[in-house]
Design a binder for these strands. Structure first.
Lengths: 340, 340
DNA sequence: TTGTAAGCGTTATCAT
DNA sequence: ATGATAACGCTTACAA
């Protein structure tokens, strides 16, 4: 079992360089020689040594997926598993591998960052769900590491893939408004993440464009977790909305729980719509009307953009925005007109 | 900004090897020299080049987490995110990195395997939830790659970390039996995974040890997904059990849905107990009485066992079995005695 | 205690 | 079209 180029070369009766050329599909090799070498390779079960190759090419074919652990709901929210899956598949398709980094504490953030990026083990990085001011972003920028953010960054030159949160939210809100609702509340997402900001912005704009005044009592803040959705709904009930836009499905699950405990029926007593369309959204009672977000596609696009960046650096900032889709299920109903 | 040992060496006025010794904490370096070198390192912002180092040490400090994609419920079941998180944290704690591999199709299985393990980019591998006959296991065994399986393997010499599924199930069943239930059904897990097998075995043993005959009509097969739990419960209802042991929380969520649709109340009409204690188990209606499985600890132990194996190979097979714990919530109640 | 020098397994440059 | 040979940046005998 040949372990090195040299051995394969001896087997094929050629030089090490020729074998290297064959493996890397270089044009200048005679067809016969090429076949000869391939035979030796197959016969000996030889595999090139990726590390040695990386040392000279300066490429590892590994990209990192970094998830800042600000994200406490990592375990319950299927957003991340789906993202991970999409990214892994896209990587494999292009011959890359995915390295996973979760920054547990901000203490080891620095350390992991150093050990990973600056040690040159990564060709590039995908950053998922970073808070707006995450220092990771500036580190990457400073060090010139190719990276793509999933979710837009306020920093202009950061490459990103995102969904149209503002537009998606407006669709959901439009739906509620068309159903006759006027007193619409919202359980917003984290204000330090663009996803949270944009969905709240969409909420405000939808009201504005329909001439409905914004009532700050109808806005409560969550953090995308189920429990924050439950607490949020409990607070929101005091303002007596007839419908609520919840900024994520997980929070909607919590909201649903709060409503059940309060003895309110959905959608008879109150309408609910949310954002994400995770698998669970169709399994709740009632199934959720929600804005579908193509998480897997986002991940794949992020990877592809990153590989582009790695292979052809230096073009302008890429800021991809994917469209969303309103999935109508059973959590919304017409507002019965009290004063006709 | 020094990029190589050589440059740091020049800066500190010593040789390259001395710098290397300092970085690697070798004893034979004079304290002054050591300090001198550290200063040069800090001053120059030097970071060792991991790839170059790996080429000579034959270690990458990277371990792989391989999840055979037989696992269709990867996205919905929080088992995997929790496992991933546990593994990542343990890795970071020991200065390792985690590379993620999901085998989408069995087609690329081979390819990814080659490109990963045989290319020597991984020091070892953690295999999660492999089916009993997964060819991955035999490949790893054949190639002598250090690896640990999460979940026991039927192959004796495979190192593994698992929970006591049989014992845990017996606890859950004992609880139901103590509550007076005799006609207890089960929605079993995948028969091709040891977790499924063991939980079914626990079910049978519990009945046996209490002198209750096994009624095959009370056993239906699921695959750990929510939808299979729902379908399973629908089938099971025909056999009219007064209680059911469901082999996973996700399936129990499905079962709960089936019961709600059938107009049955839990626990008044039928008692339910399951396995895993994922976060969702406490959020269902009613909250689930379930067997807690320390997923994060399992992952951490798997990593630690693997690192052991990598650093000190050749000891006997390690087969760790962690205890479980019965978490009593509100999904079980006394069987009211119909014929006293 | 420190320095010199020989690899590690590739790719890439330059002759031939 | 092919073969020497010099990197790549590090660790590690072996010498001094």
């Amino acid at each position: 079992m040949a372990r090195t180029l040299e051995e394969v070369a001896r087997l094929a009766g050629v030089s090490r360089s020729t074998v290297s050329r064959v493996i890397n599909d270089h044009p200048n090799v005679r067809a016969e020689t090429r076949e000869l070498v391939w035979e030796a390779i197959r016969g000996s079960g030889y595999r090139p040594h990726a590390v040695a190759r990386s040392l000279v090419t300066k490429r590892t074919q590994i990209v990192g997926m970094v998830i800042p652990e600000v994200v406490t709901n990592l375990f319950t929210d299927p957003f991340f598993p789906i993202l991970l899956r999409g990214a892994t598949e896209a990587c494999n398709e292009h011959g890359y591998q995915l390295m996973l980094s979760l920054f547990s504490s901000s203490a080891d953030r620095q350390e992991i960052y150093q050990g990973l990026v600056r040690n040159a083990y990564l060709d590039g990085v995908i950053v998922a769900s970073a808070a707006v001011e995450d220092p990771l972003i500036s580190d990457l920028l400073r060090d010139g590491v190719p990276f793509v953010s999933v979710g837009r960054s306020p920093i202009e030159r950061v490459h990103s893939v995102d969904v149209d949160s503002v537009g998606g939210t407006q669709m959901a809100m439009g739906h509620l408004i068309r159903l006759g609702h006027r007193r619409i509340g919202t359980i917003a997402g984290r204000p330090d993440m663009t996803a949270g900001q944009d969905r709240l912005e969409g909420y405000r704009r939808a009201l504005g464009s329909h001439g409905i005044a914004v009532d700050e009592d109808l806005i409560v803040e969550g953090d995308f977790t189920e429990s924050s959705g439950m607490a949020g709904m409990q607070r929101l009930l005091r303002a007596e909305p007839s419908a609520v836009f919840v900024a994520s499905d997980m929070m909607a699950v919590g909201a649903l729980r709060a409503l059940r405990q309060a003895g309110l029926r959905v959608p008879e007593d109150i309408s609910l719509t949310s954002f994400d369309d995770i698998p669970m959204a169709s399994a709740t009672e009632p199934p959720l009307t929600t804005v579908r977000q193509p998480i897997g596609r986002m991940a794949a696009l992020a990877v592809e953009t990153l590989l582009d960046l790695i292979e052809a650096p230096g073009s302008g900032p890429r800021r991809i925005v994917l469209p969303t889709e309103l999935v109508i299920r059973e959590s919304c109903s017409k507002k019965e007109v009290v004063n006709p």
